[in-house]
Amino acid sequence: MRTVIVFNHPYELSYCNAILHAVTKGLKNAYHEVDLMHLDNDGFNPAMSSEDLKAFVAHKPIDPQVIDYNQRLEKADHLIFIFPIWWDQMPAMTKGFIDRVLSPGVVYDHHPRGFGLVPLLKNLKSITIITTMNKPKLLYSLFMGNLIKKAVLRSVFKTMGYKNLNWINFTSVKSVSQEKRVKWLDNLENRFSKNR
Rank of each mutant, 00 (worst) to 15 (best):
H111K: 08
P46H: 02
K125I: 09
R2S: 05
A30D: 15
H111F: 11
L120Q: 08
N169M: 04
F170N: 05
Y140N: 13
I129Y: 15
K95A: 06
K125W: 06
N17R: 10
R196L: 12
N169H: 09
I85Q: 14
L185P: 01
S103H: 03
K75E: 08
P91M: 06
L185M: 03
Y15V: 11
S155M: 12
D77V: 08
S103K: 03
H38V: 02
V4L: 10
D63W: 12
L117R: 05
W167G: 06
W184H: 04
H32C: 06
K183V: 00
K28A: 05
V182F: 03
K180I: 01
L139F: 14
K28F: 06
H32G: 04
H21F: 04
T94R: 14
R100S: 09
D77Y: 11
F143N: 04
A55V: 06
K137P: 08
H9C: 14
N17W: 03
N70G: 00
L39D: 03
A30T: 15
W86V: 13
V57K: 02
T94C: 07
K163E: 12
L120V: 10
F56T: 08
V182C: 03
R181V: 05
T94H: 11
R154P: 07
C16F: 01
K158P: 06
T132K: 15
H111I: 04
A22K: 07
L153N: 14
A58C: 04
D68N: 07
G105E: 00
W167L: 12
I98L: 13
L117F: 15
L165K: 00
K149D: 00
L120R: 10
V4I: 11
L13N: 08
K125T: 13
L124Q: 03
D186Y: 03
E74C: 08
K95I: 02
F170M: 05
V176A: 04
F115C: 02
K28S: 12
W167R: 07
D68V: 01
Q65S: 06
N146Q: 09
K150P: 08
F97S: 11
V182Q: 08
D88K: 10
W87Q: 14
T24C: 05
W184V: 00
S126H: 00
W167M: 08
D52L: 00
V66T: 06
W184E: 01
K60D: 05
N164Y: 12
S49H: 14
L39G: 02
A30E: 14
K194V: 11
M160V: 04
T3A: 09
S49C: 15
E189P: 07
S172N: 05
R2A: 09
M133N: 14
H32L: 07
L39T: 00
K54F: 07
